[in-house]
Computed example of a mutant assay.
Amino acid sequence: MQSHQSSKTTLGVLLASSAGVAWGLSGVAASTLFSHYPQFTPLWISQVRMVSAGIILLLLSGLRHQHPLAIWREWRSAGLVIAYALLGLIPVQFFYFLAVQAGNASIATILQYLGPFVIVIYYILRYRQAPRRAEVVGMLLAFCGTALIVTHGHLTSLSISPLVLLWGGLSAVGVATNALIPRAILPRFGALNCTGWGLLLAGLAMNGYHPVWRHSVPFSWGAIALVVAIVLVGTVLAFILFTSSFSYILPTTASLLDAFEPLSATVFSILLLGTPLTGFDIGGGLLVILAVMCLTVDFSKYLRLLGQRKG
């Protein structure tokens, strides 16, 4: 029995970790696309990614008989999915690609990984609740890690473009709104429906602003492979792997394993693109990951268990 539970936990960990790697690979693919094919813009790839992935997820929902149209039968759920698309998914997707274009996938992903702290700040301001000790420690670590990345130890100057900091910061805000807005509808309508409609509506809204067909891009096999990797591997597959892990491990554990996203983005950036990263970048990234662990892991629980074992 214990062996069976251990196998399920291992499977869940592998699924969540693979999702993080897929997300990290998506950022590197986007960085490669922007550098080798400058005609591709963050707006274009965001539109194509969201519309394509949204349609695929909704088709999967239909095949699983999860009633994709049910979300539109109530005004409240319809309003929330629209808000989720416009205020959650557009910032977390579009601003992230802008940060990748202005800098590189590794730094953009690390800055976006600060999103949980935006959620903490929201709860502190909204509900007037004092932060827990772990949250205070985490915020201090996150601040130090970000400061290392941004200044490289020189507090009077920036080591990265202000645009990277701007778009990376806004994508972190997008991570928060992306997590907070759909909370009320996810249990009722399922992740496939909520995310599928959110992605589709966000992509259509951006096409309303600037239709994708008005922007001509060169289509070579290399560009097509990168776009397919971003849509299928970095969006659809990553989403399915991450949500599937919930059947075997707790969502909090899965969120902790999301640390594989900035780690894989850094490793792939160095190995595949030759992106120069300093010790400040790597050290700052590790501090940010450790900071998010402070939010996710219940250290007091583990200390109690450790004390019980020693006793």
Rank of each mutant, 00 (worst) to 15 (best):
Q2G: 08
H4M: 10
Q5N: 09
S7P: 03
T9Y: 00
T10G: 08
G12N: 04
V13M: 14
A16Y: 04
A22D: 01
S26M: 07
S26T: 11
S26L: 03
G27W: 00
V28P: 07
A29N: 06
T32V: 07
L33R: 01
Y37I: 07
Y37W: 14
P38E: 06
F40A: 07
F40I: 09
P42H: 06
I45K: 01
V48R: 01
I56K: 05
G62A: 14
L63S: 11
Q66I: 00
P68L: 06
A70P: 09
E74I: 10
L86Y: 07
L87Y: 04
G88C: 08
G88Q: 06
V92C: 13
F95A: 05
V100W: 00
G103T: 09
I107E: 03
Y113D: 14
L114M: 14
L114S: 09
F117Q: 13
I119M: 12
Y122P: 04
Y127W: 15
R128Y: 12
R128C: 02
P131V: 05
P131Y: 11
R132I: 00
A134T: 09
E135A: 10
V136K: 14
M139S: 06
L140S: 06
L141S: 02
A142S: 08
F143K: 09
I149D: 00
H152M: 12
L155M: 14
V173S: 03
G174S: 10
G174M: 11
V175L: 10
T177V: 00
I181K: 03
A184I: 11
L186W: 04
P187A: 11
L200E: 06
L201Q: 11
G203S: 09
N207I: 15
P211N: 10
V217P: 09
S220E: 15
S220R: 15
S220C: 12
G222T: 08
I224F: 11
I224R: 11
L226M: 15
I230P: 08
V231F: 04
V233N: 14
T235M: 10
F239P: 06
T243P: 13
S245T: 09
S245W: 07
S247N: 14
Y248Q: 10
L250G: 03
P251C: 07
S255M: 12
L256M: 12
D258Y: 01
S264Y: 04
T266I: 11
V267Y: 00
F268L: 15
L272R: 07
P276D: 07
D281I: 01
D281V: 00
G283S: 10
G284A: 02
G284R: 01
L286I: 13
L287G: 04
L290F: 02
A291Q: 04
A291S: 08
C294E: 12
D298Q: 07
D298F: 09
K301W: 15
Y302H: 15
L306T: 13
G311N: 10
